Amino acid sequence: MAAFPAVLQSEWTKVRSVRSTVWTLVVTFLVVVAMGFAISLVTKLNYQQFTEHKPGPFDATNTSLAGISLGELAIIVFGVLAIGNEYASGMIRVSLAAVPQRGVLMGAKTAVLGGLALVASLVTVFVAFFLGQAALGRYSTSLGEPHVLRAVFGAACYLTLLCLFSVGVTMMLRNQVLALGILIPFFFLVSPILSIVPKVENVVRYFPDRAGQAALQVYPTSDYPYGPWTGLLICAAWTAAALIGGYLVLKKRDA
């Protein structure tokens, strides 16, 4: 039986050795930080026009984290490639031969990818927050204000959950092209379009991306019939379901 620490080390080596997976995390950082800074700066320069018709207080935290809406793409690609490359190259056969205990293998993959995504997400969102607040100038906020730290930390958790959700889906499909062909249109076309359709918008609020984004809000809005932590839990439930599905496929099917 393979020891879990040894399997963890093996999975960590796999991730480090594939440049495409590492670069997707770098792209996530650059996109979220750059886009958040740019939007914050534009908001500062056009503050009156941007806020005069918006109900409720100005959410400086959410503004600085606006890049997450595009950074999601890179973190999803990271989760898909980290698993899909192993199936595409045939290395999954070697992994299963070395670690026949599929629960151990799945657990190690989830731990390494989830841990790496969480660390990268924390660095990304905190840098984006501080640079965004600097760009906002007198309209900025601070981590000491109510619910701000929760929103920033929630953003990192949200990105991590999206990564693990992508891992689970890719494990079920066992094909990175197919996984990307489903996940990217779902998150960037299907979910946004359905969210503005009156008869289904209430259902869409419980999709993983819509629910998880509630954690980024400092002030409650009518867009969410639940609080930020509940939204994050809904996203976590979707992620758990995807990972369980991935484990069941890994357990029942050969490479």
Rank of each mutant, 00 (worst) to 15 (best):
M106C: 15
A117N: 08
G114W: 03
T124F: 14
V123E: 02
S89L: 12
G84Y: 12
Y87F: 15
M91W: 11
V125A: 08
I83V: 14
L81Y: 11
S121L: 15
A82T: 12
I76E: 05
R102L: 04
S121N: 12
G79S: 13
V119I: 11
L116H: 04
I92L: 00
A120R: 07
A108S: 11
G84W: 10
I76A: 05
N85S: 14
L122Q: 04
G107V: 05
V80T: 05
V77K: 01
F78Y: 15
T124Y: 09
G79R: 07
Y87L: 13
L81D: 02
I75P: 09
L96I: 03
L81R: 02
V77P: 01
G84Q: 15
V112E: 09
A97F: 13
L118H: 06
Y87W: 08
M106W: 08
L122D: 04
V77I: 12
K109W: 08
I83S: 14
I76W: 04
I76F: 11
S121E: 05
V77T: 06
A111N: 09
L113E: 00
L122T: 06
L105E: 08
V99Y: 09
V125F: 05
V77W: 00
L81V: 02
A98M: 07
V99Q: 02
A98Y: 07
I83A: 13
T110N: 01
A82H: 10
L81W: 03
R102W: 04
R93K: 09
A98D: 08
A111S: 15
V119N: 15
Q101M: 06
V123I: 15
R93C: 04
I75C: 03
V104A: 06
I76Y: 01
G107F: 13
V94P: 10
M91H: 08
I76R: 04
I92D: 00
L105A: 05
A98I: 10
P100T: 03
V99T: 11
T124W: 11
A88T: 11
E86L: 08
A108Y: 08
G115Q: 09
G107I: 11
L105G: 02
G115H: 01
L122S: 01
P100E: 11
L116G: 06
T110Q: 10
N85W: 14
I75F: 12
Y87T: 14
N85R: 09
L122Y: 06
N85F: 07
A74D: 01
A74Y: 11
G107H: 08
L105M: 12
A108L: 06
G107D: 05
N85D: 12
G79D: 07
T124E: 10
A120F: 10
A117M: 00
G103L: 07
G79P: 10
F78P: 03
V123R: 09
